[in-house]
Amino acid sequence: MKLFITGDSHIAAIKRGYHILKGQNDSFGGLEIVFMRTDSEMRKSMYIDALTPKLPKYISLYLRELRKLKLEFHNPDMWVGLSGPMMDSFVTRRPDLDKYAFSDADTEGIPVSKAMREAIVLDDQHHHLELIRELKKAGAKVFVIEAPLPFLELYEKLNLPPEKKVVPFSQLYRQRVKQALAEMDVPLIEIPEHCVNDRGGMKIEYHVGKEDDFHHCSPEYGVLMLKKIIDHFTKVTSTA
């Protein structure tokens, strides 16, 4: 089985994890793993500008790049793994998040209805969900790698209000995307449970360590995530 792993900047940790394992002569459960690079313009448009009018163009470029890597979309032994869906930081890192109330229980702030929350999440993820649809339409089998949860200690440094606002919004954000992925029959590889702290954020020891970086994970986390991916697909292979 061959896995093409691609997506946003969170791929970097997984790729570094891959090299760590490779250095240890890991067999990757017999899976062949390929990381696909994207040029910066495509990456920006594909993974940042959710509602760019150029999105269809970038999706077709993306599919072309995958074909160049000899990805046979209809081959049952090939999977495309995407990071990016469930990356909530464009919303959760907004400094004005504390102005809003995201649940009935939260009485402080501007009430945001469920319909509004859904619209915000689906708009923020529009590009990823479109890409998944197009990939599936082309015959590819797609899985999603969950993006890291917020590092709450770092949000505090940015004066963002983690417990009251960031955690509940991040949870409902991910819940809605999970629903969308389930509707498209797309498997999701979730963050390893032991990487999550009691507060509902990423454990700080898995942070990449750069001072000016508030959401990327370390290669050690990449190892753990990659192992989870490998576990998932070796099980798929053994039950096939």
Partner: peptide, 13 residues
Amino acid sequence: PPSFMKRERHNDF
């Protein structure tokens, strides 16, 4: 509108 709502959605809400 909430600052993080896309402009295209404003009228819908």
